[in-house]
């Protein structure tokens, strides 16, 4: 039954690992913006599709800079 010491140690370590992961994710600001990622997640597919469409007739476009156009 002395195995229980090891089991306890493992369970506490596992719990501590998850706890530190939580603390670090808060520290990195992962929970600061809870809304945008939920929207952004849905864009991904559309982007890939468009890219493949674009590849066929991709031309080198001039980057848009308004200042030059105005003058």
């Amino acid at each position: 039954m002395n195995i229980i010491y090891m089991l306890l140690a493992i369970s506490v370590i596992v719990a501590l690992v998850f706890f530190t992961v939580f603390i670090f994710s808060v520290k990195n600001g992962q929970y600061d913006d809870m809304y945008t990622p939920s929207v952004r997640m849905l864009f991904e597919d559309e982007l890939v599709k468009e890219k493949s469409d674009k590849q066929k007739n991709k031309s080198i476009k001039k980057p848009i800079i308004f200042k030059e156009q105005l003058k």
Binding site: Y35, T36, V39, R40, P63, I64, I65
Partner: peptide, 23 residues
């Protein structure tokens, strides 16, 4: 959100852009 995060398509000098919607 979408258009602001795809600004790099308008001008390649923009590398990445990330929107924080609540803020």
């Amino acid at each position: 959100i979408w258009v602001l995060e795809n600004l790099n398509k308008l001008n390649p000098a923009i590398k990445t852009s990330q929107v924080n919607f609540p803020k």
